[in-house]
Design a protein around this nucleic acid. Structure first.
Length: 434
RNA sequence: UCCCCGGUAGCUCAAUGGUAGAGCAUUCGGCUGUUAACCGAAGGGUUGCAAGUUCGAGUCUUGCCCGGGGAGCCA
């Protein structure tokens, strides 16, 4: 017989089981106790009747404190009065560690403020909603890996310590690298996996990414996780199709395996059921028309603001892809549109409901001469990019890829307002503890 | 970096310039089907820090510290 977990309680109906976990909350009613236990997979109510257990067990149960660790023995019984439909009729209880009453667990079952909860992040993650979010994050990551692994992609992780800016735009975390001068924490693995893609065809990297910008919004972390696929012999259309398939796969997997978590998070799953191909594809020009109809004054050539993206995403009931932005608003390595060179062959995928960009990607410049020109235009150090230029010297091909932000994706699927809750230990401008 | 909001009990919040209070948590008592259980009682305070105005400051003024929301930037 497999080991008992709360998530699988229904399978153990009528059986004697051992629950290893922690006390989540305790309700008392005279000679009846209703301790609620959690074991990491969920929360389950137990029933303790004074008449049915030894005085020692009764004493241990009545003096349990919140988050004390326990091993509880009992039989699983279906009862519609129990949250979740099943309860544990307790007949024995071992206390592994009792939380002392003079130093009670700080997070009571009532409401708390963000500042306090973030300072108690190491404990806050035990709560029902937070642990559901972390299980959801796990499922999203597992879905991403399965998607790429089963579609012929090779995992080739990029370095986290890098000698120079990947894109030369955003602010980087700097550190001393022995005698070789300054090094930086990566802001993207893209340039490196362009190399591995030329070696292996279809590749991806998946790791943490660092941005030292003093961003202070619900959509930003200074340390976040990004998965970046890169494909040789790929066009912008291929990339849009891949992004659409990836996001569809992630959402379907979560719906298939994490219904209880979505329920805990009170997510309206009907909106997620809509996430099937095709996603609407909107050119930058058409996006601008849409914004101008709503009174926006945004001139052609400017990048869309967060508010603009929110407005556009609200026009659709599933993610929307905006493609072919003005080249001057985008990164130096993006391939120009051969029909309109002032446009870049790039695309962003915007999640619904204002969650912002979850994907940003492009076809890369494959011409040596054009790439060199762009490096010079952007005042980037040619020496540092020689290896990158080599990729255009030796068998250059049309290629491209994109990055998908894990935390924004989880926040959108979970329907929560701030991405800081989608990672175990968020790193933000004014917070690095715990 | 800029704009806005906030800081009072362990937590969430009250308190016309006039004796700092409630709910939860904790402790004790009651209750055999509780649903963030409920009922009764007790303990718990350098009102973020510093200075100023005033007979009197949690409240008004100034400075500083620490958070939160947003802008820019991006995933």
């Amino acid at each position: 017989m497999s080991e008992f977990t709360i998530a699988q309680a229904a399978r153990f109906q009528g059986q004697q089981v051992t629950l290893r976990g922690w006390l989540y909350n305790l309700r008392e009613s005279g000679k009846l106790l209703f301790p609620q236990f959690r074991d990491g997979t969920g929360i389950m109510q137990a029933v303790v009747s004074k008449a049915d257990v030894s005085s020692e067990v009764w004493e241990r149960a009545t003096t349990l404190t919140q988050e004390s660790s326990v091993i509880a023995h009992g039989t699983v019984r279906a009862d519609k009065r129990a949250p979740g439909g099943y309860e544990l009729v307790l007949n024995d209880l071992t206390v592994v560690q009792r939380v002392p009453t003079d130093q009670p667990y700080p997070i009571s079952p009532k409401e708390h403020g963000v500042d306090f909860l973030m300072s108690q992040r190491h404990l806050w993650m035990r709560s029902a909603k937070q642990s559901a979010l972390l299980r959801l994050r796990h499922e999203v990551i597992a879905a991403i890996r399965d998607f790429f692994d089963s579609n012929g992609f090779i995992l080739t992780d990029a370095p986290i310590l890098t000698p120079a800016a990947c894109e030369g735009t955003t602010t980087l975390f700097e550190l001393d690298y022995f005698d070789l001068g300054p090094a930086y924490l990566t802001q993207s693995g893209q340039l490196y996996i362009e190399a591995t893609a030329a070696a292996l065809g279809k590749v991806y990297c998946f790791g943490p990414t660092f941005r030292a910008e003093k961003s202070k919004t619900r959509r930003h972390l200074t340390e976040f996780w990004m998965v970046e696929p890169e494909l040789s012999f790929a066009t912008l259309d291929d990339l849009m199709k891949l992004g659409e398939d990836l996001v569809t796969h992630i959402v379907a997997r979560v719906l298939e395996r994490r219904r209880p978590e979505l329920e805990t998070l009170e997510r309206d799953t009907s909106k997620l059921e809509n996430v099937r191909p095709p996603f609407h594809r909107l050119s930058y020009d058409d996006a601008l028309k849409l914004l101008h109809q709503k009174g926006s004054q945004l001139p052609w050539g400017e990048d869309l603001s967060g508010a603009d993206e929110t407005f556009i995403s609200q026009q659709f009931d599933k993610p929307v892809i905006v493609h072919r932005y003005p080249a001057k608003a985008k990164a130096f390595y993006m391939e120009p549109d051969p029909e309109r060179p002032e446009l870049a062959l790039c695309m962003d995928m915007l999640a619904p409901d204002g969650y912002g960009e979850i994907i940003g990607g492009s076809q890369r410049i494959d011409s040596y001469d054009l790439l060199l020109k762009r490096l010079r235009e952007n005042n980037l150090p040619e020496d540092a990019f020689q290896w990158y230029l080599d990729l255009r010297r030796y068998g250059s091909v049309p290629h491209g890829g994109f990055g998908l932000g894990v935390e924004r994706t989880v926040a959108w699927i979970a329907g929560i307002s701030h991405i800081r809750e989608t990672i175990p230990f968020p790193r933000m401008i004014y917070r690095i503890y715990p």
